[in-house]
Each structure stands twice: as C-alpha cells, then as structure tokens.
C-alpha cells in the first residue's frame, strides 16, 4: 500500500512541455479540456480530432508509453458506463444484430468516451511533466488563497512520509502472518488506519510547533516569480487554440 502512495506520476525529462512554467500549463490544460467539453454531442469529426489532439499533447511530452498507458486506466470505470449507455438510455432504438440499442444512448456514450479520453490524455500529460513542488508554485502564482496552497504543499511534502508509515505497518502485519482475504480482516486494517490517523495528526502538531519556533506567522514566504515569456503562454495555449478550431468546426452550419 505504501508503494502506491509514493509512486508519483512525474517523469523527469527536458521536453518542451516539461520546460513550460507550471501555471501556464495548468491554465492551458483547463482551457483545453473545457473547450473540448463544450463540443456538441455527436459531432464525430471534431470529437475524433479532440482525441487525436489529446494524444498529440501527451506524445509531445516524450514520456515512454509504459509510464503513461497504465495511468490512463483510471478512465476504465467510465468507459464501462459509456459502453452501457446505449442499453440504458431510452428513445428511438436501432437494431444491431440481436441487440436493440438506443440511438441517443449511442451518441451520448460515444461523446462521453471521446471527451473523457481527451481529458485523461491531457491530464496525464500535465501530471507526467509537473513536479509536485511546481504545482504548489503554480497554485501560488494563480492567486489561490495562501492557506489552501500551504495545505497542498504540506500534503505533497508528507505524502511519501505518511505512505512509508503505512508501508511499515503493512510489513509488520504481514510478517506476523496477516493475510487479508475477506471482510474478517477489516477490523485489523481499520485499526492500522486509526493508528495512522493518530500518528499523522500528532506529526502535524509537532510540525506546527516546529514552525512556530522558527518564526512562522501564518504566511507563505514570498518566492521570486520566474519569468513567463509570451512564447510560454503561446505554447501552453496552442492545444486550446486547436480545440477552439474543432469547436468552431462542430458548431459551424
């Protein structure tokens, strides 16, 4: 369980996407996905274009597929839902072999599949190219309130510490012959989670006192803003521009 917590998605490299400032990349990601979501249902050309665009953005990170493909699997539960839609939705039905499918459900399912896949491709592209500490800086530069940025920074900083705590508990259980196979194991697993909460909360109290003793007064230290050149913005918003063209294509008469 600990390994999974600390298995960060970020893969170090020097591609164009890696070098973009994280706040520009984050705005670019939001704008891209929002534009794709706005494409009307059933506009198959633009929707296929959006999936290709997402794949191109991911390919431009030059991160090997063996790192990115497993991450795309988070999409799977909704692929199942999208495939079920033709059977669930009502309205005009079309026969496909022995099956009777809802036409509206087919359109909605296909559209959802295309949009969710594009979102996942672009999301993985952001995740593999952005270090946790850069995400914290990006949120700070995008004027997210200080307390929230601080909470994010504590979370990314202590994720591997707490994950290792959990892994040690698991090793301790397994080395005593614990093999969780059925709900009978739940009280033991939940007791570990309870112990983890107490340890983590107490760690928070110690961290707070250590910060106060070093002069913490409730604010983030100011960081010098790295220069964001117009070229950075242009690169970060390029996929959004392409998506806007797809949206225009979809809504054009």
């Amino acid at each position: 369980m600990g390994g999974a917590v600390t298995a960060h998605l970020h893969i170090d490299s020097t591609s164009l996407v890696h070098r973009l400032p994280a706040h520009a990349k984050l705005l670019g990601l939001l704008a891209l996905v929002l534009t794709v979501v706005a494409i009307p249902a059933g506009a198959w050309g633009p929707l296929a274009g959006a999936v290709i665009l997402g794949a191109a953005v991911l390919a431009s990170t030059r991160v090997p597929a063996r790192h990115t493909l497993p991450r795309l699997l988070v999409d799977v539960p909704f692929v199942v839902f999208a495939l079920a839609l033709p059977f669930l939705a009502r309205g005009e039905e079309i026969a496909l072999g022995p099956l009777r499918l809802s036409a509206a459900g087919l359109v909605a399912g296909g559209t959802l599949l295309a949009k969710a896949t594009t979102g996942a491709l672009a999301g993985v592209a952001f995740a593999v190219t952005t270090r946790p500490q850069d995400l914290v800086l990006a949120l700070q530069r995008l004027r997210v309130p200080d307390p929230l940025v601080l909470i994010v920074s504590f979370m990314v900083r202590y994720l591997s510490v707490v994950g290792d705590d959990l892994a040690r508990m698991r090793v301790a259980l397994v080395s005593r012959g614990f093999r969780p196979r059925s709900p009978a194991a739940w009280p033991v697993l939940a007791a570990s989670a309870g112990a983890l909460f107490i340890r983590t909360y107490e760690r928070g109290e110690r961290v707070h006192l250590a910060m106060v003793s070093r002069g913490y007064a409730g604010h983030l230290p100011a960081v010098e803003a790295p220069v964001t050149e117009p070229a950075h913005w242009a690169t970060a918003l390029l996929p959004t521009g392409c998506a806007l063209l797809l949206l225009l294509w979809a809504v054009a008469p």
Partner: peptide, 12 residues
Amino acid sequence: ATAPLAGLVATF
C-alpha cells in the same frame, strides 16, 4: 495550526 494539521490530515 490550520495549514500543517489540515495538510497532514489530507495526506492521511
């Protein structure tokens, strides 16, 4: 203590 405690609880 909001930031450190909430941050650690989020991690939990």
